[in-house]
Nucleic acid binder design. Sequence first.
DNA 1: CTAATATTTCCAGAATCATGGAAACGTCGG
DNA 2: CCGACGTTTCCATGATTCTGGAAATATTAG
Lengths: 112, 112
Amino acid sequence: MMSSDGAVSALAALAQGHRLAVYRLLVQAGPAGLPAGAIAEALGLPNSSLSFHLGQLNQAGLVHQERQGRSLVYSADYGAMNALVGYLMENCCRGSESCAPAGGCASEPASA
Amino acid sequence: MMSSDGAVSALAALAQGHRLAVYRLLVQAGPAGLPAGAIAEALGLPNSSLSFHLGQLNQAGLVHQERQGRSLVYSADYGAMNALVGYLMENCCRGSESCAPAGGCASEPASA
DNA sequence: CTAATATTTCCAGAATCATGGAAACGTCGG
DNA sequence: CCGACGTTTCCATGATTCTGGAAATATTAG
């Protein structure tokens, strides 16, 4: 269940050019995700800047963080996006025809 | 076709508590929309503040503005939301199974 | 034309956010 | 233990955003 504050956090996290690029990159990378270094190189961002933005996305619940050896691997949380869109479109048009809840990607391919 | 800047504008427009509330109200109001005054009353916002936020939503293309007599009636643009979600999920998981483009609400009930 | 209604624009102060270099932190190999 | 690697935290500066009262701008009625 998405709260207003949660939705604002998620939207604010995406409402920034670099973070939007990071998120889209992770969406396209799929469940395996990408290590921070690969993201920094792909987007040409300084490490400190990227770390700040990844932190924002993580705190908003849009991405997950997992350590693999020396690397921190980030991956998109598709379920969070689906919840966000569901919140935005909640009770769309007071439930009239041609208003269906949006479904994006499978929430979690293998785990939980 | 949604650009990165357009997506950032739309997300930034929604990434604010009052504006998110306004937008959801308009989504639920349906294509008929609501006059600014009704929105101000429903959300308890000062006129100048609401006008500022409506301007942001309008400039981001998320809502339409139409004069009806003395009132300015605002309505949600469902097509813009669909385009935004499409942009966010573009090429999701590199096109593997269980990744479908999200469809939200009908774009435009009667006009254009 | 004047008054009343509906909404926007103007403005300045307060609060929040983004940036990137340098230093600190966890992790691995020898 | 030590050096190298990958990433985060710290910090100050500059830029952007939000707020709401008062004045200005449309629109309609008499």
